[in-house]
Nucleic acid binder design. Structure first.
Lengths: 225, 225
DNA sequence: GGGACCGATGGTACTGAGTACCATGATTGC
DNA sequence: GCAATCATGGTACTCAGTACCATCGGTCCC
């Protein structure tokens, strides 16, 4: 076990026993059998122990998006987001412990949220050019791109949260459904046959088209042609 | 000028001159002609000087939503969000200084983002029951409610940012447009005539269906098959 | 007027995170 | 065997934030 791993384990144990604020860096270092200096060389800050893989995960999302080919943007977005989900699923109990910690400690919550925003920024950087192409440049395309980048992160978080709370046994299937929903709401028209989405605003009788619409709007079946 | 105002002014001056991290609380207190203790009694933390009205603004948003009457949810959401926009517009240069600070200082950025999430939570608390009613309980309604709550905040931020950067002279009109867009994407059917918006996904020629659908989709009609 | 009370202020001392610097000991390369 | 390198740990510092206490000005009551 590396020093870093010993420190991480000691930290999570102590956070669980006493709480985050009640644990000092000295406590962690002592339990791990190292000095304080070593802790800060390994982790940079006390909070960072809780989110050790954040930067790497963010980079892998960016890499997945960078590797996307034109025309497959929706798939690239979904697959990049899936990387994050799979990472947490693989962590198992550790992810649940982190979840409990972030619910309880405002500073950790703030850091988690800031981290999520970084994902949103990465998705935005990928999605904005695509939207400008699909909708034309201007505020409308940029706003929609922001909304989609948000929605991808929120969709992911929604599913992850259900799993962290033990509310679902099928997070990956839920994820597919959520991504379909999200991409269906936002993706601009493009060469991709899965991206033919229209926003309509009217002010009259729905019943006439309802049967026809039901086919398209039906849960589960709605998004795939 | 109250002690709090003197401290605030001194702080912003120093942040501007030397930067946030390079300014100590002692510096601020000294320039304001008070003691360190008084600073912490007035502000709670160094970061809080930068976001002094956050809690009050959040409460006013909550209050506006609490006062909403059934059937006017979209208007309530838009008006509650508008409160925030108007607050920043009224601040003028102070808001721009804060914007510059939050771009430069990661800790302030994180705090700003955490604050935005609080707005999202408030909107979510308001919107979720409405969506459960409109779509039925379940993950789909909850996810869509989250997406709308996000989108309201993002729409607001989008417009505010344009103004903070000096890219628009008509933030209020932009805001109306953004809210229409956002609510149009997400709002479930309701009595409000501005809410008769349906998101539809087809794989056919859009131009062919659009006029027809435009005719038949009605406000107030349920999207539930 | 005088004394008791009270709120705001400011000072002192403490804890704990994070940084800088240096000494030491182990490992590696030659 | 020797030198260079690197991880480690120790010491000392800055600064945010907290706790506690002393002081001072005003106010209220007698």
């Amino acid at each position: 076990m590396t020093v870093r791993e010993r420190l991480s384990q000691a930290a999570f144990e102590l956070f669980d026993e006493r709480g985050f604020d009640e644990t000092t860096v000295d406590d962690i270092a002592a339990r791990a059998g190292t000095g304080r200096t070593t802790f800060f060389r390994a982790f940079g800050s006390k909070e960072e122990v809780v989110f050790p893989d954040h930067d790497g995960l963010l980079a892998s999302v960016q890499a997945r998006l960078d590797a996307a080919r034109p025309g497959s943007e929706p798939a690239a977005v979904a697959e990049a987001a899936r990387l994050v989900l799979l990472h947490y699923l693989a962590e198992g109990d550790l992810a649940r412990t982190r979840y409990r910690l972030t619910r309880r400690v405002p500073a950790l919550r703030a850091r988690e949220i800031a981290g999520q925003r970084q994902y949103q920024r990465v998705f935005l950087g990928f999605v904005r050019p695509w939207f400008r192409e699909g909708y034309g440049e201007g505020a409308r395309a940029d706003l929609r791109a922001e909304l989609l980048a948000d929605a991808v992160v929120t969709g992911h978080n929604h599913v992850l949260r259900q799993w962290l709370r033990g509310r679902t046994e099928t997070p990956e299937a839920d994820f597919d459904a959520a991504m379909t929903e999200v991409l269906g709401l936002f993706a601009p028209a493009s060469g991709d046959p899965t991206a033919g989405i229209v926003v309509l605003r009217t002010d009259r009788d729905l019943d006439a088209v309802l049967p026809q619409l039901r086919r398209v709007l039906a849960p589960g079946a709605s998004m795939e042609p």
